[in-house]
Design a protein around this nucleic acid. Structure first.
Lengths: 332, 332
DNA sequence: CTGAAAGCGCTTACAG
DNA sequence: CTGAAAGCGCTTACAG
């Protein structure tokens, strides 16, 4: 599968490779006669020429590739993010490399290295716990870098996130105004700053309300099993209880638990979940949820990255988008 | 962000770039003295050298990139496929480019072109209707190519798929043996061969059974709305009815309809769905479904592609994997 | 209006 | 054991 090169075109058309390059790139600067222009285009088509972006990348030192590193591309949230990023990136002429790091800092580091060796022009990353070292290495090289969804506690990086604390406080308000006997917060046992924000936003507000609260923290390994176990231990149906699931995975696992145990929502327990997923629609009750602005997150992150690629600035902009509480029928 | 090159290493270590290249690539053929070897490694580390795969790709004419083209990476089915392909590809040293074509042949063609310009070593594709032209162009270049999930009617390509007709026949058997008054097949209004197989496998079998059947075909544009509309028109609860949803999207849309209309499963209607998705678990009844062997599909497709890359053969192997019917509680 | 030449960062057969 | 040189497919400042 030897492909035609501009050298082939040049030879057949009887011109120099320089000339071929000029007409193929439609540079207006140096005028080429229409005759040779036509001939070159004709030859190019006839031998089925396709440009070799690798060669171009090497010469131009930009690849028009960008890397996306997420925890897991098979997670609904990230695959939706990825899809929107793909569309936005495409518009700007970038092609997307995707990698999943499973919350593992070593995998994260390897992915950044791999992508950087492939000379991606920049990366959009959802950094994991303990990824500071890998990130700092990229920063030292002034590698265009943008965070999405998450952010780093000790490193200032351009990126886009949502108003985690505020939206959690808002969710809390929805619950406290209904005077539940008890509210259960289901979150992750993690140090990820954006998730801590989500948790603290809730905690501070619920404390003021005086309503008794339980905090149920789940490890990222065995979500379904652990949610089951901890809900069994903590959910007391004798009390009027509301549960706030602070991610899509937690929401799905939790609703599944309620389903399996025939616990009716909102009659026996009220529920608010984070993120939007088709799955919620299959639950008997329409679940009230927090909607993240995925399209805008993707748009802004690509825009930020493109800016960084075109003009690197060490302390780039950090954009906070507004998540939206979507009231349905799962709180009563 | 000017990066160090082997030239820099050579200069600092006082050796030639050839020597640097040899030791960096650990070639055993030409023996380099331990002294210079150590020095080179030391210098490489000290100036933070990372290889430029673009340069290497150009020289070696292989990029260690592979492209994956699916209908939509945000679709649960494809994002799971993608994740497994990512893992398998990684093991063999490939990095993954991902593109979504939305069942649009023009987008499909553009993606193949883009990927080929980026010099991917091969592509794993889920071809869409009318993609023959784009595929044939790749074949003409002897471009390593493997289909996944789908296959082409008029072109023989290596690939991996499942036993669509057989598993549908098996699903049909589950239903016919329960002597329903009516069975509704919900499928796509499409020419995609693998979906037609799924449909015909069911149709042939159900015809033999003599049980009245309705075939409900849904366009790929507005799945939820159309499923709603057609289910409303075709579902007659006075009859003992079973519905076979032949994809995850159809299953989700259909179950959502049943949910919204408080139609109980399996008391009022029996259901079998295709594909596995977390969503099914949120439905009040555990849904019986057809499980596709995603991991094996990914494994085999990457293996086939790697074979094609290393040794191109025009009419590569076509692998059919077995889907599995998972009986739950939605048929009665 | 067009071409010769250098160079992007690598690899490798060849010579010494 | 090591280096000089060619070449992968491009782009572009420069010269004519």
């Amino acid at each position: 599968m030897k492909r035609a090169s501009i050298k082939d075109i040049a030879r057949i058309a009887g011109v120099s490779v320089a000339t071929v390059s000029y007409v193929l790139n439609k540079k207006e600067g140096s005028r080429i006669s229409d005759a040779t222009k036509d001939k070159i285009l004709e030859v190019a088509k006839s031998i089925n020429y396709t440009p070799n972006k690798i060669a171009k990348s090497l010469k131009m030192s930009k690849s028009k590739l960008i890397g996306l590193i997420v925890a897991d591309i098979s997670n609904d949230f990230y695959s939706n993010i990825a899809r929107n990023i793909e569309d936005e990136a495409m518009k700007l002429g970038y092609t997307l490399l995707i990698g999943s790091c499973d919350e593992n800092p070593e995998k994260f580091r390897k992915l950044t290295e791999l992508f950087s060796e492939h000379q991606v022009d920049g990366m959009i990353v959802a950094p994991v716990v303990d990824s500071d070292e890998a990130i700092n290495k990229l920063i030292a090289e002034e590698y265009p870098l943008v965070t999405i969804d998450r952010y780093l506690k000790n490193i200032s990086l351009p990126g886009v996130m949502i108003n985690n604390a505020e939206i959690s406080a808002h969710v809390c308000d929805q619950l406290t105004e209904k005077k539940f006997d008890e509210i259960i917060y289901v979150g992750y046992d993690t140090e990820l700053p954006h998730l801590l924000d989500r948790q603290e936003g809730f905690e501070i507000r619920v404390k003021n309300s005086g309503i008794p609260t339980k905090k149920v923290l789940i490890g990222i390994q065995n979500i379904t099993a652990e949610v089951n176990e901890k809900l069994k231990k903590n959910l007391n149906l004798k009390k009027r209880t509301a549960i706030y699931f602070s991610s899509n995975k937690l929401g799905i696992a939790g609703l599944r638990y309620l389903n399996d145990h025939h616990i009716r929502v909102p009659v026996e327990v009220s529920v608010i979940a984070f993120d939007e997923t088709e799955a919620y629609h299959l639950f008997p009750t329409d679940i009230s949820f927090v909607q993240q602005p995925l399209i805008d997150m993707a748009k802004e992150s690509v825009k930020l990255l493109d800016q960084q690629i075109n003009h690197y600035t060490p302390n780039g902009e950090r954009i906070t988008l507004q998540a939206k509480y979507m009231e349905r029928n799962s709180v009563e």
